[in-house]
């Protein structure tokens, strides 16, 4: 589970799954797939979930600009206030302001997250987006899909499928957020 959208303060100890170059390749491939599957790229909005989803959305937009020669719109979608477990978690998730280009009607919104796990964050993002309007389509992209879904949700774009045990943790570091080199680690409890 990602850590409530907070910055990490230290390097993880565990198996490194992806390094900076592997993350770059994975995101570049997702960018290609987004271009292939969306004939009208101008209608696409990349909506990042804070914190790392926002950074991943920014990087994807850069790759799409390079490859597709088009400026694609990005935004931020806060999920904390749409979660269904407030009051049951030890730590209250930090809320962030959402920012999406409006109106969303006729547009394709791609939700961007770093790790797809239970699917509850993606569900909250779907709920949050619907409070802004009714997009033509909503898709989901994640850098890592670690399995263990608790809801009928699947990703349209995945950087890496990574089978995990529920007790294990996936830790993602992104330079612009964590002030540490890019990397993904599998940490055993």
């Amino acid at each position: 589970m990602q850590m409530n959208g907070k910055k990490h303060s230290s390097s993880p100890t565990g198996n490194q799954i992806l390094d900076a170059e592997a993350i770059r390749r994975a995101l570049r491939r997702i960018a290609h797939e987004i271009i292939e599957q969306n004939a009208d790229l101008k209608s696409v909005v990349l909506a990042g979930i804070p914190l790392r989803g926002v950074e991943i959305a920014r990087r994807l937009a850069e790759f799409i600009r390079e490859v597709g020669k088009i400026d694609i719109e990005t935004g931020t979608i806060d999920v904390a206030m749409h979660r269904d477990d407030v009051g049951t978690r030890a730590e209250l998730p930090m809320v962030h302001a959402s920012k999406l280009p409006l109106p969303l009607e006729q547009r394709t919104v791609i939700i961007i997250d770093d790790v797809l796990f239970t699917g509850r964050t993606a569900r909250a993002a779907l709920d949050a987006i619907s409070s802004f309007g009714r997009p033509a389509r909503i898709q989901l992209a994640a850098l890592i899909d670690r399995g263990h879904r608790e809801l009928p949700i699947r990703a349209d774009y995945v950087g890496k499928n990574l089978p995990t045990a529920t007790r294990e943790q996936i830790q993602v570091r992104l330079q612009n957020i964590d002030e540490e080199p890019d990397g993904v680690w599998l940490v055993k409890e």
């Binding site: 206030m81 749409h82 979660r83 809320v95 959402s98 619907s130 409070s131 802004f132």
Partner: peptide
């Protein structure tokens, strides 16, 4: 800051509580 943004949405309501 985050909650102020909710007031500008089409649906000005979130399920937080």
């Amino acid at each position: 800051d985050a909650f102020k943004q909710v007031g500008t949405r089409e649906i000005k309501k979130v399920p937080a509580l």
